[in-house]
């Protein structure tokens, strides 16, 4: 009953988020009627996901056969949830997928493509004027923060590479690597030449 309650809470939050994306629910409608079973091996847990036009229904048990069953340890499931290259994770040896894998990949794609219209949600509570002001303010803050972070990163890299000389700079490293590559090629050529001369000497003798 505790797990049922927990899943009910997660489901409500998830469906609220899905409603903030104008395309998610119509795309989920296409998966309506499908049952996806997720079996976590360590710790042993089972979760059933039922997509529909209303969102996702999560269940701790489902007394009907699943269309697709994903079995994996918790770490792989987490990696699958966070990774953009989901197919690569699904091909790992500890992950097994039975049934119609297209259902799972389609669901993962929908969740990955989510673009939440959070301004709409805020406007329901604060109204359009306050939302525009707040959204503009937040957006400028986010821009400032991201520019600040990029600038800090650049300055730090310049300081470490150019001023304190603690690290080798990217361009300097690239030049050294290019020289090493040239040297390696020259060495290969020399080796081939020596080999050719040795074999020519042997045949003369």
């Amino acid at each position: 009953m505790l797990i049922t309650g927990l899943l009910a809470g997660v489901e409500a939050g998830l469906n609220r988020a899905l409603r903030l994306d104008g395309t998610a629910l119509p795309r989920l409608q296409a998966l309506s009627g499908k049952v996806i079973a997720v079996q976590c091996q360590s710790p042993a847990l089972e979760l059933f996901i039922l997509p529909s036009g209303d969102g996702l229904q999560l269940a701790a048990q489902w007394h009907a056969p699943a269309d697709c069953t994903l079995t994996a340890p918790a770490a792989s499931l987490l990696r699958l949830a966070l990774s953009r290259e989901k197919t690569a994770v699904l091909h790992r040896p500890e992950v097994s997928l039975d049934g119609d894998s297209a259902v799972l990949l389609q669901l993962a794609g929908i969740l990955q493509d989510l673009e939440l219209d959070w301004e709409y949600e805020i406007s329901r509570w604060l109204g359009p004027v306050a939302t525009t002001l707040l959204a503009g303010h937040l957006r400028s803050r986010v821009n400032l923060a991201s520019h600040g972070a990029a600038s800090l990163k650049q300055n730090l890299a310049d300081y470490l590479a150019e001023e304190s000389r603690t690290l080798v700079g990217q361009r300097e490293a690239d030049a050294r690597f290019a020289e090493l590559d040239q040297l390696k090629l020259a060495l290969d050529r020399l080796e081939a030449r020596i080999e050719r001369l040795t074999s020519a000497n042997k045949s003369d003798a």
Binding site: M1, T4, G5, A8, S32, G33, V35, F48, A59, A60, Q61, W62, H63, A64
Partner: peptide
């Protein structure tokens, strides 16, 4: 609501 959820889970209803 949880009691009803559990009922739906056990029903095994399909499309």
């Amino acid at each position: 609501r949880l009691w009803k959820r559990f009922t739906i889970e056990l029903s095994g209803v399909r499309t």
